[in-house]
Each structure stands twice: as C-alpha cells, then as structure tokens.
C-alpha cells in the first residue's frame, strides 16, 4: 500500500500550531461569499498532511468521509459517525476535532493532519513509537485517534487550556495522571488499553 505522505510533523510544530489556534483572537483572512451550485456539490481545496488536495464534493460529505472515501486516507476511523467515540480525531489547523461532526465544505483552505501525516511504518513519530513500546493498543481501530489526541493534549496543556481535572485554574498546567486521563477521555478504547496509553503519553511528554 502506498500513501501520499509528504511530511512529518514534529511535536513542537503541533504545539505551536495548537497554541496559535487557541490564542486566536485574530481571524483567518476574509473569504468571499461562495455558494454551492444547485447540484449541491462544491469545489474545495485542503492541505492534507502537507499536500495540497482539490476535491469536488457533495455538500453532505463530512471531513471524515472526504478523507476516507475520497482521499483514501483510511487511517482516520469511523467508529460511530456521531461524535461519541473519538476514532475520527484529526488535527485541523493544529487543533484536534472530530472529523465526523464537520462538513468537508467548511474546511476549504484548512490544513488537516491525519495519522498518516505523523509518520509511517518505517519512520514513526515518537508518539507512534511509544504506543508500540507500551502496547498501548489492541485492535488498532481507535489508535490513530488516540495518537492524534495524545499529541494535541500535550500541546493544549502547554497552551494553558484547562480541563475538568485542573486544580488551580490560574496555575501553570501540568501533565498529572488525572489531567492526562481526563483530556484523553474523548477517545474511547473498548479493548481497554487506557492504562498503557497513559504510560505511552507520559513517556513522550517526560514525567511530570
């Protein structure tokens, strides 16, 4: 299987991107009004894993299905299609979202990073390597989403985004066990690899 991989993002790049996303008081460049034709299809362009991609899609196509069915980037998984599982987690402009609850049409001009953009079998991202080292997965179906989230979680902590597990909101955020587990809770793993996933993420982040 060959995949259209062109770059690999480092943790630092993700951190920066997420921090910018969070702090964004400024706005993306103004976009002129554009309307779909009566056919309900719409041209759009995305930058996916660093590669520019043009698509002409039914307006109903989600970002998830655009990736999986149209770009054949099937690393992003469909577990529920309703925002209940997190298997479809990807980074858009450096911020993690559920690709199933987003229309592709709304991402014209966006930068999307999927699991395929993090690394490939012969050139793993440190988080991917840590997941293997800690056996932080079993069936593998939630795994790409877990990894995308894990990388984003580290960035969110650095950016000072609080979580339900945060004690003092004003104090600098740390990667405690409680923080990590709370922040990763949007990614369900029915095989129950949570304990190992926590170990993998801590391994990459460095112990608090």
């Amino acid at each position: 299987m060959s995949l259209p991989l062109s770059h690999e993002i480092s943790r630092r790049e993700v951190v920066t991107a997420a921090a910018v996303g969070v702090a964004a008081a400024g706005l993306p460049p103004a976009v002129g009004g554009q309307a779909a034709g009566s056919s309900g299809s719409l041209p759009l362009s995305l930058t996916v894993n660093g590669e520019h991609r043009r698509l002409d899609l039914d307006t109903r196509v989600t970002l998830l299905d655009a990736l999986r069915e149209h770009l054949h980037l099937t690393g992003t998984k469909k577990g529920c299609d309703h925002g209940h599982c997190g298997a479809c987690t990807v980074l858009v402009n450096g911020v993690r979202i559920n690709a199933c609850l987003s229309l592709a049409a709304m991402h014209d001009g966006d930068e999307v990073t999927t699991i395929e953009g993090f690394g490939r079998p012969d050139r793993l991202h440190p988080m991917q390597a840590a997941f293997i080292a800690h056996d932080a997965f079993q069936c593998g179906y939630c795994t790409p989403g877990q990894i995308c989230s894990a990388v984003a979680v580290l960035a969110e902590i650095e950016a000072g985004v609080p979580s339900h597990a945060t004690g003092d909101l004003a104090a600098p955020m740390t990667l405690s066990s409680g923080e990590l587990r709370e922040r990763m809770s949007g990614n369900i793993c029915r095989c129950g690899a949570y304990s190992n996933i926590a170990d993998a993420v801590v391994d990459v982040a460095g112990r608090p």
Binding site: G21, G83, V161, L169
Partner: peptide, 27 residues
Amino acid sequence: AHPRVKREYGVLARAIVAGATGQLRNK
C-alpha cells in the same frame, strides 16, 4: 482558556470543561 475567564469567571471555565471532550470543545 481565556486568562480572564480562568481568573475571574472560574465557574464558567469549569462548566465548559466539564462538558463534552477536548475535540468537541475545540469545535
């Protein structure tokens, strides 16, 4: 994550992060 919300409107920050997930709150 807004500094004033965290500092002065903590009940709002805490209510928000009690809801949904990181992914959903980003969107």
